[in-house]
Design a protein around this nucleic acid. Sequence first.
RNA 1: GCGGGCGUGGCGAAAUGGUAGACGCAACGGACUUAAAAUCCGUAGGGGCGAGAGCCCUGUGCCGGUUCAAGUCCGGCCGCCCGCACCA
Length: 849
Amino acid sequence: MARYNAKESEQRWQAAWAVRDVFAAGRNPGRPKSYVLEMFPYPSGRIHMGHVRNYTMGDVLARFRHAQGYDVLHPMGWDAFGLPAENAAREKGVNPRDWTYANIEAMRSELQAMGLAIDWSREFATCDPAYYSQQQKLFVDFYKAGLVYRAEADVNWDPVDGTVLANEQVIEGRGWRSGALVERRKLAQWFFRITGYADELLAALDQLERWPEKVRLMQKNWIGRSEGLEFRFDLSNGGSVDVFSTRPDTLFGASFVALSPDHPLTEQLAARDTALTEFVAECGRLGTAEEAIETAEKLGYDTGLTAAHPLDPAWKLPVYVANFVLMAYGTGAIFGCPAHDQRDLEFARKYKLPVLPVVIPEGADPKQFRVGDEAYTGPGKLANSRFLDGLDVAAAKEEVRLRLEAEGRGRAVVQYRLRDWLVSRQRYWGCPIPMIHCAECGIHPVPESELPVLLPDDVRFDLPGNPLDHHPTWKHATCPQCGKPALRDTDTLDTFVDSSWYFVRFCNTAAPQPVDREAARHWLPVDQYIGGIEHAILHLLYARFFTRALKRLGYVDIDEPFAGLFTQGMVCHETYRDRTGQWLLPEEVEKVDGVARLRGTDEPVETGPSEKMSKSKKNVIAPEAIIDVYGADTIRWFMLSDTPPERDIEWTEGGAEGCWRFVQRVYRLVTEMEIAEPAGAEITETVSGPALELRRATHRAISWVTEDLEALRFNRAVARIYELANAVSATPADVPDAVRRESLETLVKLIGPMMPHLAESCWEALGHKSLLVEERWPIADPGLVRADTITIAVQVDGKRRGEIAIARGADDDLVKASALALDGVARALGGKTPRRVIVVPERIVNIVT
RNA sequence: GCGGGCGUGGCGAAAUGGUAGACGCAACGGACUUAAAAUCCGUAGGGGCGAGAGCCCUGUGCCGGUUCAAGUCCGGCCGCCCGCACCA
């Protein structure tokens, strides 16, 4: 029996594709283009199952488009800057660059072993000077266009690692690597002005029709737009404070003003008030951990100041410092209206402040309406509010706005939750920020003629802090303005900057400027982007911002980088523990009659739920090991089968074996069915019976698989292919060879994008000299997709009582008569006369009594 | 708390309002084999009747509704998962 040798075949076909350079992104006049991209990997050292799933899906789409006659751009690169390389340097004494490039080598060969249809000529790593030097040019362009600015900001400072951390690197108030309590520090840092695009980024979400609704919603919430009024309270000390409110209509329900502990006025007051200083420190200690926030009591400190009500200067409100007021949102100060805001209510109850309802729900009596434990936030009519009484909420907001604007005391503003993007990192292994600080004349960009600013190789990692900063010579430069000695910026850019435009660079990786405008115009936007949901906000939002900024600078002419986005699910596996509770690797466990034991022993093993593969729980399977045993096609087929691509998939040994069996089965089908008809023969005769059935199954499969691949429903495409394989297996011997050849060649072509090596071997076994990868996608014959005899169910009162086989397009009366003639129908009717017979053509008959 | 998603056989799952469970995994019965593996054929939601062909009842988290017809639409519960979270 012919056995398919995956290892041999895969190497052979990968070499054949490379020789013909079939995946080079060509540009042929008249052909449509398709840019297929998966999120590029961080070169951690080994590919994992998540990569395999991600790149398999993208590869299927790229190959499918290629077969359909598109010019396909399907590139690969490396998101190669970042902390792990530097940590490896600190821990193992290796150079971050050597470590990174060695990892890239290892991972590239693993990806190549998967047989990906990638244009490797466009490969680059973000740590290549050729890439980051272009990024430095972009940074300078951004700076000149006012898209970059430097400002003092409260940042997360890790005192052990001696660096700023991104918000996502702070876990429960501690640095993710050092475990040290993160401090808040005021530091001068570089920011990208993403908030300038907040409105555009929000509005354009509606146009991203081929994005998951979930991601659009997450971005919408993250941007967090709210409209309101910003206005001034005059204080008893002669000063004033601005507040922001989305509910200015409730102004007559105000009972206090509250400042953030970080508000400048708080600082000013604390300088002369040690009790306040202590209160502020206590607020700081409570931290930002989520549970702390959830359970934290509302705490306030009465400053002793009063604020004059903006609509009645005689009315004085107490001014508190309150722990729940955030400096980072609005103005860092609020007015409290306890009746209509839950937080304000809790605060008012604690400090015995008035709770006056000013919005009365429909039907309630303004004199009777009271607020208990829950603030009323719904609609209603204003009351207890002087000239606002009787207005609805919207009208009252408008009235208050007009009054305060007329007095020059307030203005309508739009607030966003989104903050500007802090891009400075006190780290070595990143793109140096090309700026020079001159003590004499200020901050200047490095002149273009002096770019790139290269990372030095001779750095020490045995000292805490930023290696660039304590390098003996690197930071010393000359001021481009006045020529005096000056200092380089020793910070590097957040690695999310690197990944915000790599997809643009792929259009022409050799361009001497950041973007080859002509190539970018041709290939962009990315038609289908595929990656994990974990990037729903950060990377995808930054890349959207970057694209708009690049457009403003004239580099690209699109607003949105990714026309289609698909977020795939995670790869999971059961977890195992031994008697002492230690995690076990799957290969340390064997199952005998469904009972898990430590391999080669009687030691019982506790099997846990299927969870995302992770090193900490040891429930990982190395793709390399699977490819080694079964080959790349088997692992690819597994990733596409059974589970819808957006859901989490569970890796099982049994499933992998099933896929392997199918690989063998297809090969057997092709090699064992003896076909006299030569390759390329046409079906000339009209066929009937089983031969016609096989032709129908073949063309239905083409139609369905094509639709499913278009919609990225890989699991359904797989099921359709199994159906076709089953139909081919069941073919009687007397079916003409030409028909059998058609079904087998179709099967092979449909499998092509998913299991490309197997498909090439089968194509060859069918007598072809060409490469399957250069063949066109099959086209279904519509006449064969639609059967001319169809089976429809017959119901009596909605219950199925039989079925009839009838010609497509048969007259309703004939359908009705055939249905009524069924034994089962007569039995169910039991002599009753039908009141109605509903015939839905080609669907169903329902007889109603 | 707010927002979103999901509940279908032993498991992963299919199903434009129209025959629920396609397809796969696991399982069971049989064939082939000295034996095993591989392969092939067959069974299979649950319950019942029948020698059998087959027939009947019931079934998509729970309760109700719309409809000739509901896994699918509507209302109300229950459970799980994800995101955000003192955002004024």
